[in-house]
Design a protein around this nucleic acid. Sequence first.
RNA 1: CGGGGCGUAGCGCAGUGGGUAGCGCGCAGCGUUCGGGACGCUGAGGUCGGAGGUUCAAAUCCUCUCGCCCCGACCA
Length: 571
Amino acid sequence: MRFSKLFGKTLRETPAEAESVSHQLLLRSGMIAQEAAGIYCYLPMGWRVLKKIENIIREEMDKAGGQELMLPVLQPLELWQQSGRYMSFGKSLFTLTDRKERRLALGPTHEEVVADLARRYVKSYRDLPLLPYQIQTKLRDEPRPRGGLLRVREFIMKDLYSLDADEAGLDESYQKMCQAYKNIYARLSLPALMVEADSGAIGGKDSHEFMVLTEDGEDEVTYCSNCGYAANAEKAQFIKTRTNAEFMLPLEEIATPATKTIEEVAGFLGVPSSQTLKAVFYYADGEFVFVVIRGDLEVNETKLRNKLKCSDLRLATEEEVGEAGLVAGFASPIDVKRIKVVADDSITLGSNFVVGANKPGYHFRNANFPRDFQVDLMADIALARSGDSCPKCGNKLSCTRSIEVGHVFKLGTFISEKFGASFLDKDGKSQPIVMGSYGIGLGRLLAAIVEQSHDDKGIIWPFCIAPYQVYLCPLNLEKSAVLPTAEKIYQELQSEGIEVLFDDRDDSPGIKFNDADLMGIPLRLTLSPRTLQSQSVEAKWRREKEVQLLPLDNLAVRVKKLLDETASSQS
RNA sequence: CGGGGCGUAGCGCAGUGGGUAGCGCGCAGCGUUCGGGACGCUGAGGUCGGAGGUUCAAAUCCUCUCGCCCCGACCA
């Protein structure tokens, strides 16, 4: 490709809208262009990269026994009503009505379509297992697209669905996919960590996410560097400390003026915050909920949502707390009536707690569960934080931001039962198909790679997905034989099967070098009157500082050899 | 959906006591340059996000609206 003919220009200045590194570099290097919020065009350079990523994923899916197919973007809305996910997907589902007033959804994912296909084609245990997959555009009306390609409304996704006869089969498929995913990240030189994930209110048993640890991510991972335990912060467990088990003392009301926060109360009374109970109020699907947790801990809203089995969860406003007959800042689980009380099990790991008296300026001392109050639901709903103890080995946990570049889960029979997707087992008995689903967002993966592999000059593509392998960079085109020699090299490299971006622009060296660095092409070949004097070109790897001279003689073959060595060393 | 910010040339920005829009980069032409974003001259390019209003006169003041970004909520 000749640079002068390339669709899309590099930008010298960063567009103001771009915040994350990947967004800035992808825009500046002319890989992508924004069309609307969360909607992007892939320009030729970016598209080349994306297609290479796609091929790597396709190869690994095929190797694992996957079968590629193509599924519709337009899906009958009835499928979504039938699975029950019309409600749970809510506003994220794009819907439309056709000319015959038939309601359709733009597929945000394709479990329904696959289940529908499965119920029509899978009749016997002999038909299973099956691993159909697709690589195509999906649409979700995200509440807030962000970070360039990191979170968008229209995206290309590889989704594989496993159909098995039983749990054991599902386990096997799941293992295969996890291995395939690890292969994919390894080939992309992307350090992705497999972490335990929340499967949501309608998920199955197991779910894992593949995370790239980086500050620009929007997820949070909690991990233990000692034993390797890692989980999405939404899911992370930890060992709760037990505070002194004292003899239960009688409940006692005490004046605590102007002490609304846990810190103020604890400070005023001279007790640690772990000796207090914190009250937090939520609305869960429209129902007011009183949450009690030990004062030194925070509520994990995902855990709470799962325990409550609700889809909509939000903090109650101060007015709503008042309307519920509670005094914000001094609320108490003691003597609450007609309100659902949910407690974290940390309230059993201590005694003689300080808790609100439900009147302004007063608390109780020596509150003990269950002597002084009851709860409707007791569970682990606490947020693991940096410094807490690892649930596996007891060492300190750490927290870090991350990008989710893959998500696998065991769906089970939830959807197949609703769809009547069943088969006859060896005993002639009807059984629901056991499903799993395994997704990778290609654009997000591409962005994560940029986040992970760049310097202050620009992108540094892993060799196997670089848009071009060689950046052919002649300087001072007018002088001596530079241009004709460059043209000749360009032809020779191409006939060796090398992907070349030929910078045929009559621009100054600085511009060319900077664009080469910005676009992250692995090998730069510079020729100038200077190198021609010694009948050579200068070769420089994007990720290295040193340069080497290559003789013009038999250049294409030499370059091919260099590239092959790099390709094999990186795989 | 709550909070904050921003919409003026392709990109980055200036321009409020109201008076028919500027700068840098980029782009086109000519010339000089040429190893890390060179220089001179000439030139093209703008419904000032949109609608309504106030005014003799609006990028600027008022009202409404649309879009984009960030934080949070949300998110298989």
